[in-house]
Design a protein around this nucleic acid. Structure first.
Length: 376
DNA sequence: AACTCGTGGAA
DNA sequence: TTTCCAAGAGT
């Protein structure tokens, strides 16, 4: 008769489970066995056989990957990681790079505070730590954009030191394993305690990647492949018959709509762009100049006030873009720059190679839409 | 604690 | 179409 792991009480107090104590070693070894056999390949990963042969990961490469992977799929992040590592092979190279180039290289990846902090962190490590990443959780945690998860991930993956990673995958795996009744995000403390007890002191780097792989490949959000799971025998979620119901979640707020207008001004094969404010949404990234984004349809007088010059403005249409906490309806209106007109803010950017100009996705959509109406 | 902060793939 | 949600952090 196989046992399941007992759930933790709603109060967050840990009811020490003898089953966990007894099963812990079996869970660890079966997961590592599965990981070795699965052989999942990721560009930043040192394969378990290579690690066993003494190949040490490059902490810089691991750090870049972990920042990119925050709330981002491996598939989306992979080409960016390759481009960054090829262009800036060491933390010193990244620290010495002009900031606009780093931001432009990040364009399209989202959460742009990550790019600003990546550059700042590279300069901290290069200039104040001789280019060497710290190994302690405390020192890692002090670096910009390195939080609870990322500090543990770097410590485990890069240095193969004992650490407990809790990302979205681990949350899903462990809430299913225990059929946890506490909804997220309130369950985070229970999950952290459970994850820490389970984390392996043996091959900590491989274990950390293995438990995340398990969530990414087997214990998937919609249709978990329990028959392929090394932990299925211990899984309380599977025994409920509906493992995909876990983790339970609090209801989410609905997403409001905001509206704005932007000006697509072209001339001599160039387009007018400006840089956004340092902080906030799309902070420090390039954009098409326009009105602010408001929670009601654009006011004609506001459009007039933001309008750079009198012209035969043509509507290109609307870009619909979904951000995390609101969606945007962005009206794009086009005109050719009048003879002799010069932008007071921002400047001209050649349309050839606009893909490399460092525009975030929403602005790239607006540029393309405008070009359909006014080809240049 | 509850918000803010992007994007794109999957179902 | 809508909804979910990715190797989360900062405030």
């Amino acid at each position: 008769m196989l046992s399941t792991i007992a759930p933790v009480s709603r109060t967050g107090k840990h009811e020490r489970s003898p089953l966990l104590t007894n099963a812990r070693e079996a869970l660890r070894s079966s997961l590592l066995e599965w990981y070795d056999r699965a052989g999942r390949s990721l560009p930043w990963r040192v394969r378990p056989e290579d690690r066993a042969a003494g190949v040490a990961p490059d902490p810089y490469a691991v750090w870049v990957s972990e920042i990119m992977l925050q709330q981002t799929t491996a598939q989306h992040a992979a080409p960016y990681w390759r481009a960054f590592l090829r262009r800036w092979p060491t933390v010193r190279d990244l620290a010495d790079a002009p900031r606009e180039e780093v931001l432009a290289a990040w364009a399209g990846l989202g959460y742009y505070a990550r790019a600003r902090n990546l550059h700042a962190c590279a300069q901290t490590v290069a200039n104040e730590r001789g280019g060497v990443f710290p190994q302690s959780l405390e020192d890692l945690r002090a670096l910009p954009r390195v939080g609870e998860y990322t500090s543990n991930a770097i410590r485990a993956v890069a240095f193969d030191k004992p650490a407990s990673v809790v990302d979205g995958n681990v949350e899903r795996v462990l809430t299913r394993m225990t059929a946890m009744q506490t909804p997220l995000p309130g369950a985070r403390l229970e999950i952290r305690v459970l994850a820490a007890e389970l984390a392996s002191p043996v091959r900590p780097g491989d274990y950390a990647q293995a438990i995340m792989d398990l969530g990414a490949v087997v214990c998937t959000p919609k249709s978990p492949r329990c028959s392929a799971c090394p932990w299925s025998a211990w899984c309380a979620g599977r025994r409920t018959g509906h493992p995909a119901r876990f983790p339970l979640r609090q209801k989410k707020k609905s997403r409001p709509v905001r509206w704005g207008v932007c000006f697509h001004v072209t001339g001599q094969g160039r387009i007018w762009l400006r840089r956004r404010p340092e902080t906030g949404l799309l902070g420090a990234m390039m954009e098409l100049p326009g009105t602010g984004w408001t929670d009601s349809a654009p006011d004609p007088t506001e459009i007039d006030k933001a309008c750079p010059f009198e012209a035969d403005w043509r509507r290109a249409g609307r870009v619909r873009h979904v951000f995390t906490h609101f969606s945007l309806e962005l009206e794009v209106i086009c005109a050719a720059a009048p003879e002799g007109w010069r932008p007071d803010v921002g400047g001209w950017v050649p349309l050839t190679g606009i893909d490399q100009a460092g525009l975030p996705s929403v602005m790239m959509k607006a540029v393309r839409l405008g070009l359909e109406t006014r080809p240049v």
